[in-house]
């Protein structure tokens, strides 16, 4: 099998507070995302999973300071790229779906315009062709009346519809090699969560995407993902195939996480 599409090696770093004090948040984080697989990164809030995901695209908060590590994408270390080179990667080769899609879309431009802008950025062509493709993308993620919806603004979208539009943007308009999904269902109603995860699962299977799903919900992982990376307090606790993690967890933390998600409520989860 060829080398993994994404390899994170020994990523460490801290948050710098305004007075200069450093709080370590990532400790020697290493894992790989093989081509054509969906890898989940699971962990509670504050485990460093989102920070790791944002670092791949270089859009981590400015207060984060990396002290060591490499992020190899298709064999190249993204952390050594010049800003222009990194811009060539963003959207075109690696794309991301954010947690709160309504906030992640620009409030003063129509949803269609925002998607079409990105389409033109990556694929060129005329504005009308970009809008046509945008409407096709919105239809592909099961947004009803996509022509009308494209002319609406994010505040006219429900959370679930906005997340569908976000997925259309990140997965279909961008057509990336690696799709990062950062807690794509958090904050949505439970029934909507299931529908969104189904959509993501379908897209991944149909298009053979390589994806990295950041979530705290192990229930979601079992159905969609091939591999799991468990993180806790800035460290990778355990990695393995989904089957291995669910049936033969080696680490105590993984077992507790599994137990928590099955019982629904245990002290650890409430704290999170």
């Amino acid at each position: 099998m060829s080398s993994p599409l994404l390899e994170i090696e020994g990523l460490s770093g801290s948050f710098r507070s305004p007075n200069g004090a450093l709080t370590p948040v990532l400790h020697d984080v290493s894992f790989a995302v093989p081509r054509g697989t969906v890898t989940a990164i699971v962990g509670e809030t504050g485990s460093g999973k989102s920070l790791t995901a944002l670092s791949i695209l270089g859009i981590q908060p400015p207060t984060f300071q990396r002290s060591a590590g490499r992020i190899l994408f298709d064999g190249r270390d993204l952390l050594t790229l010049k800003p222009e080179e990194m811009r060539g990667i963003r959207g075109r080769r690696i794309s991301i779906v954010f947690q709160d899609a309504r906030a992640a879309l620009n409030p003063v431009f129509t949803v269609g315009r925002q998607l079409a802008d990105v389409h033109r950025l990556h694929h060129g062509g005329s504005a009308s062709r970009a809008m046509k493709r945008t409407i096709e993308a919105l239809r592909a993620v099961s947004i009803p009346e996509p022509e009308r919806r494209a002319r609406q603004y994010p505040h006219e979208f429900s959370g679930g519809m906005a997340q569908r539009a976000m997925i259309a943007l990140a997965a279909l308009v961008c057509e990336p090699e690696l799709l990062i999904l950062d807690e794509p269902t958090t904050g949505l109603d439970v029934t909507i969560q299931a529908a969104i995860m189904e959509l993501i699962g379908d897209l991944v299977r149909e298009r053979g995407l390589t994806a990295c799903l950041i979530t705290h919900d192990l229930g979601v992982v079992a159905e969609t993902c091939d591999r799991v990376v468990v993180m806790n307090a800035g460290r990778v606790v355990e990695t393995g195939t989904t089957e291995a993690i669910f049936t033969r967890p080696r680490q105590d933390y993984t077992r507790r996480l599994l137990a928590a998600s099955q019982l629904g409520e245990t002290p650890e989860m409430i704290e999170a």
């Binding site: 859009i59 060539g88 990667i89 963003r90 992640a104 990105v118 990556h122 943007l169 961008c174």
Partner: peptide, 8 residues
Amino acid sequence: RTAVAMGH
């Protein structure tokens, strides 16, 4: 942040 991530 979204616009940055999309490569603008």
